[in-house]
Amino acid sequence: MDTVLYLAHTQSDETLSKGALEALTAAKELTAQLGSANLVVAILGGDVQTAADSVADCGASKFLGVSGEAFAQSRYATDAAAIEALCRTAQPAIVLCGSSSRFNRVLPGVASRLGGCADLHATEVKADGGSTSITRWYYRQRIRAAQVRDKRPWFVALETGSDAPWITAGGKAAVESVPVALPESSLRTTVEGLQKPPGQTQTIRPDADLLYVAGAGWTKKQADGEAHIQDAESIILDFLGKTQASLGGSKSLVDISGTGQAVLSFMTHLNQIGQTGAIPRHPKGLSTCCHGEEPHAVGWRFIHERRAINLDANCGWAHGKADVLYVADAFEVMRKVNALLEKS
């Protein structure tokens, strides 16, 4: 009987993230699809009991845990040792988890150590006739592929937003603690903590309902022949403040900072979406002044409802990709949207 190992790590408050709960939904479905498979839950963190209790009624046959100060932090050497120990105990065929910076760093290495394989950034995992397959994207979300692998264990990290989070009443889980032998050399790295985004303004909000995309058009000369960077900044910040939307930028806009041109001061490479930036997932996306820029093509792949404001009615980069294209001056429209938001 194959074992599906559901792998999770705790957050700093010892709970599981939304992405982790989404992966649990997928793990349960996969176990069911595989018929005779067995679901095992494995959690690592400073103290995993709270997290294990929160999913106690998920139907797992066993709960494994690695706890301790060394595992409260996200670090390759200790995480790899912990996951290796959990896998050696559970002997899984498939290891399923939610995508996170912590797991993305460590899983491929552990998989290789165990003679298995790993796929990060999966958007779907399913079993058909006993055979497991995943879907993931190649060439910056341009080509979608479904693939199967022979090697086991097969680690799959599911992108957030791929499934609905598993909703649970919780309970009391009996966690079997798995010992991890940590050689001293595995603590050559110490984690100091987290650093907030540069600048004063929080503009990246992965959980926001709306992704607001600013294109290079905001910094270009407007109808009066002048650029209005300060206006652009205040309009965009005002909108972000009122809607709590997450801010994305096109590569051109972010790159402008390297050319000595005036830029939006709160925009950094971290905001970049598309080619070499992030591929965010939000229910809605509004792009402005992005004509000829990439967000429509790639950065929008996982935005459900998409609208664009653009001066060119023939913009081929919004046609067929946006649901609605407003042919209008984004400065004027967004000012009015802000005024309406103010009133409401």
């Binding site: 996200s74 670090r75 996170s100 910076s101 912590r102 790295t189 110490t190 984690v191 100091e192 903590g193 987290l194 650093q195 907030k196 985004p197 929080q202 503009t203 990246i204 909000r205 992965p206 971290l270 905001n271």
Partner: peptide
């Protein structure tokens, strides 16, 4: 880079 536009600092 970690979640939420933050950075983890390690030594």
């Amino acid at each position: 880079r970690v979640e939420g536009g933050m950075h983890q600092i390690s030594h």
